[in-house]
Design a protein around this nucleic acid. Structure first.
Length: 148
RNA sequence: GGAGUGAGCCAGACGAUCGCUGUGAGUGGAGGUUCGCUUCCAGUCAGGGAGGAAAGUCCGGGCUUCACAGGACACGGUGGUGGGUAAUACCCACCGUUCGCAAGGACCGGGAAAGUGCCACAGAAAGUAGACCGCCAAACGUCAAAGUCCCCCUCGGGGCUUGCCUUGAAGAGGCUUUGACGAGGUAAGGGUGAAACGGUGCGGUAAGAGCGCACCAGCGGAUCGGGUGACCGGUUCGGCUCGGUAAACCCCGCCGGAAGCAAGACCAAGCAGGGCGUAGAUCGUCAUGUGGGAAACCGCAUGGCGGCGCGAGGCUGUCCGUCUCGUACACCGUCCGGGUAGGUUGCUUGAGCCGUCGAGUAAUCGCCGGCCUAGAGAAAUGAUCGUCCACGACAAAACCCGGCUUAUCGGCUCGCUCCGCGU
RNA sequence: GGCUCCGUGGCCAAGUGGCUAAGGCAACGGAUUGCAAAUCCGUCAUCGUCGGUUCGACUCCGACCGGAGCCU
């Protein structure tokens, strides 16, 4: 499995998945990108794109989407797995490949940590953790190493 | 060379690496299988992969579903003529009006003597005319003033017998002139207004007026010629002239059933529904809750345990026996219709493109030959580097075509017109 | 992608083709008051833009621009 590809399985495609990610309301924004995230049982990280009509016509919005896909394609091996991300570009003037790569990495890292904390808190509640028996091992190990 | 005008074409190019999409070939893995094959995933090779406007959604069609005997009305659209076309509000040619020196451009270009409405303010008047001011005094009436009354004539004076009637005068009446009023004639002129009832000249008249005449502009009828036709040209007659607005209602001719690929067709988890099949609406007891009753007690609901019966399964080769499970708004099996999520399809070979020839002024059409040229679906064309140049505008398919409109850095080609210079 | 509708001062809005346009709230200025509030008076409009029809357009017609809603 070569890390530089970007296949259809890495797209978030169904409206139900979009609703699930938006419903968690776990989001991070810098001046460039707004990123929503949610855990996912498949180790393949998936992304969905949402570009507002504010940014311009179809040409401009298509260009932004392509930049985002290219940025994700180039840095996807550094992004933690088991995630669904929704990327929303914010500032058209700051749009560039490098900026998107940087804020994608930072944002996904912060979201991963926040999701793990939320999962630890919700361990007492019985209803939520039906998706990730596989993911539970990793988040337990990682914060143990980094936080002290 | 400059200015302009019309038509058409192009829409950065090339190379390398990484990546996306669907097509074809073949490889590997997983699943299904009636062993014919087929579905999904990964990777290899080959070739394809946004526009002239893909846009706005303003028209016209195809296609799909629904509705539907036929006709008329309503409603909506359309509007010079002829042609082109699947069709059009589009295109071509022509006609008319108009702008431009010209090449050429623009025109929602039927009907206002079928009817209705409106035309603010101003103005006399805004429409089958009418008459405020003005002009007129020929004809009519009333009133007032002046003049006159006989004779002659060259029309202004003269003459003598000083005048018709009553005795003289005054007055009255008649006539003439002037003025006022009434009734009347007239529409030449009148500040206005976007628009005012043909224009100029001569005649004519009381004043005037197409009232008459000449020329000009325009309208209508008849007729002749040309043209398929819109229309053009001529002759003659007429009343002399009729306002504007139909992107106000309306009238006339023609066209139009409605909705739209998120249309529609097929498959179909889950949940809910229906039909059929299957063995108890069983007995006892206990607990809890609850109702009635003074109480004894009698009911109802839920649950536990047990008995008998039934069904399924196990033990055993079979029966008996025994064990487990189930035993009624359920479960199980099976079938049915509708159909959500989701999937498949519609989905690209078409009023298609290119070329020769032919028909036609042209739009366009015909014959023949060649070509296949995006088909996605949270939605594919990107990133990085290098070279070159004119230094890259507007902007991306979403069922498909034909148009129109709008946006657009620039570049190229051809036809034509005007001006300047040279030969 | 398709369909429907709407644009009038800062905001909400009325408006038969005939006055650069009714009203309410706000803002500003003035009057009133010892100062405020309330009250009264006044000011504030390229009728989304452009073109056309008409003598005349917010109104009628066309083309653009902007903004909503519905179909999923």
């Amino acid at each position: 499995m070569s890390p530089q590809t970007f296949t259809k399985a890495q797209h978030i495609r169904s409206p139900a998945d979009f609703e699930r990610v938006y419903g968690l309301k776990c989001k991070v924004a810098d001046g460039v990108l707004l990123v929503f995230a949610a855990h996912h049982e498949n180790p393949v990280t998936r992304i969905g794109l949402s570009v507002s009509k504010k940014h311009g016509g179809a040409i401009v919005r298509n260009r932004l989407k392509r930049l985002l896909r290219e940025a994700f394609r180039l840095v996807q091996d550094q992004i933690p797995p088991h995630l669904d991300l929704i990327l929303i570009p914010l500032n058209k003037e700051k749009a560039s490949l490098a900026a998107y790569q940087q804020s994608l990495l930072k944002g996904s890292d912060r979201l991963q940590r926040r999701l793990n904390q939320a999962a630890l808190h919700d361990l007492s509640l019985p209803d939520l953790t039906l998706t990730d028996p596989a993911t539970m091992q990793r988040p337990d190990a990682k914060p143990g190493e980094t936080t002290p």
